[in-house]
Amino acid sequence: MMRIGELATRTGVSVRALRYYEEQNLLASQRSPSGQRQYPDSSADRVQLIQQLYAAGLPSKAIADLLPCVVNGEATPELLDRLSAERDRIDSRIGDLVDARDRLSTVIAAATANWRTGQRCPIQ
């Protein structure tokens, strides 16, 4: 078992965020006799999973719905459809980001070539 500060340090997530995860039923703790939150060692992996799902753009309600499936391996056909839709949305987002990066690379290459020849971009 570890206290909230140790979990925060281990995961790089703020104490405030950990409390929020508890409020959203994403994370559970037990209370010590003195009232301090105590988390099982497995909580560090769970927090990292929560962070990844947030980074993927899922709201806390969706994460709360998905966590039992991810942790227990239980899934309904509806949940599998939802997971597939989220994966497709992430794939689309990745494609958009790759396109944006490629466009920036093209602009950088053109600007670098112009700079070497003494031409300046009209936008300063």
Rank of each mutant, 00 (worst) to 15 (best):
G73N: 06
V98F: 15
V70H: 04
V98L: 12
D88Y: 13
L79Q: 00
D91V: 05
G95H: 06
R103G: 06
D96C: 11
L53T: 02
D65L: 02
V98S: 14
V107G: 06
R87N: 02
A109K: 15
L83I: 01
I90H: 04
D91H: 14
A64Y: 13
L104H: 07
V98N: 13
A110L: 15
L53W: 04
S60C: 11
E86K: 06
C69D: 00
P59S: 08
P59H: 11
G57H: 06
D96N: 09
P77T: 12
A111D: 15
G95I: 02
G57T: 03
D81M: 14
R82W: 09
V70F: 03
D102Q: 07
L79I: 00
A64R: 07
S105R: 07
A111R: 09
I94M: 12
A64V: 10
L58D: 00
A85P: 01
T76S: 12
A100P: 03
E74C: 11
L66T: 00
A56S: 05
E86G: 01
D99C: 15
S60D: 13
D81Y: 14
D65K: 00
A62H: 14
A109P: 07
I63W: 03
L104G: 04
S92G: 14
S105G: 10
R82I: 02
A56D: 02
A111Y: 15
T106D: 13
P68M: 06
L83F: 01
S60L: 14
D65G: 01
R93I: 02
A110V: 11
C69H: 00
L66Y: 02
L104C: 09
A62G: 05
G95L: 05
A100W: 13
E78V: 01
L53M: 08
A109M: 11
T76G: 10
L58H: 03
P77M: 08
A64E: 12
A62R: 09
L79E: 00
R103M: 10
T76E: 05
L66N: 01
L67C: 06
S60V: 15
D99A: 13
P77H: 12
T106F: 10
A56E: 02
E74K: 09
A64W: 14
L97M: 08
A75Q: 01
L104A: 13
R82G: 01
E74R: 14
A110H: 09
V107Q: 14
L53R: 04
R93F: 06
L67I: 07
P77I: 04
D102R: 10
V107R: 13
L104R: 08
S60M: 14
L97D: 05
S60W: 13
D102M: 10
R101L: 06
A62F: 11
R103D: 05
